[in-house]
Simulated scan of single mutants.
Amino acid sequence: MKKVLLFGSLTLFLFACSKPQGFDYRDVKNVRVETMGFNQTVLAMDLVYYNPNSFGVDLKKVDCDVYVDNSYLGKFQLDTLMHIPRRAEFSLPSRIMVDMQSVLKNGLNLLFSKEVLINVKGTTRVGKAGIFATVPFNYEARHKLSLF
């Protein structure tokens, strides 16, 4: 009888603690230049996600590379703990320090473009009850960018 209860408990535990699904990356909104400098510029945006899981999850880490018109723009890293509700859309405010020398070398036309292709590639660390998994993601879409 104890073996049956133990087996039943373990089976229920394994199904209840299924691996979290990756977030659906819905959109990048409010892309803007916060400060513009000759050497460094701060680019800010709100990354919009949807949690498809039927349970809330904890977002522990985001590590991604950002590309604009297929030119490397910079790296975004978040190392804080956020609770994400179940089946909910949420926004992650993001700031990227951009090396303007690299931008100017890879495409002066970025400064004068009205629309750009934004690619965000990386991983997130999500989990529940202290158990975390690394989930890759890739987002790509065209966005309007107003610098002036």
Rank of each mutant, 00 (worst) to 15 (best):
L47Y: 07
G37R: 06
A44C: 12
V4M: 11
S71N: 11
V57I: 09
R95F: 09
F13D: 00
Q21K: 14
C64I: 00
L145T: 00
L12Q: 03
D63L: 11
A141M: 13
R125E: 14
V62G: 04
K3I: 08
F132T: 01
Y72M: 03
H143A: 09
L6R: 12
D24W: 15
G127K: 03
T11V: 14
R87P: 06
H83C: 01
V48M: 05
K144N: 12
G56F: 03
E34G: 09
N30W: 07
S91D: 08
V120I: 14
G37W: 13
K75N: 12
P93A: 00
F90C: 05
N51V: 02
T123Y: 11
S146Y: 12
N106Y: 08
M1H: 14
F23K: 01
G122K: 02
Y50V: 04
L47Q: 10
N109R: 11
S54P: 14
F76K: 02
H143F: 04
I84F: 03
A141S: 15
N138G: 06
E89M: 14
M82N: 08
D79N: 15
K3E: 10
P20N: 01
V66I: 13
P52C: 04
M97H: 14
F55M: 06
F55D: 02
G74K: 01
D79F: 11
A133R: 12
A44D: 07
P52S: 05
V135S: 07
L111I: 03
K60V: 02
A133I: 09
K121M: 10
C17D: 06
K3V: 06
S54G: 15
N51P: 06
R87V: 08
L147K: 03
G56D: 07
D65M: 10
V42I: 11
T80F: 07
F76G: 06
P136L: 04
V28F: 04
D46Y: 00
E115V: 05
L43T: 02
K114F: 13
S18P: 10
V48Q: 09
S113T: 00
P85R: 08
N39R: 10
D58R: 06
Y50K: 07
M45I: 01
K29A: 11
Q21C: 10
D27V: 02
R95I: 00
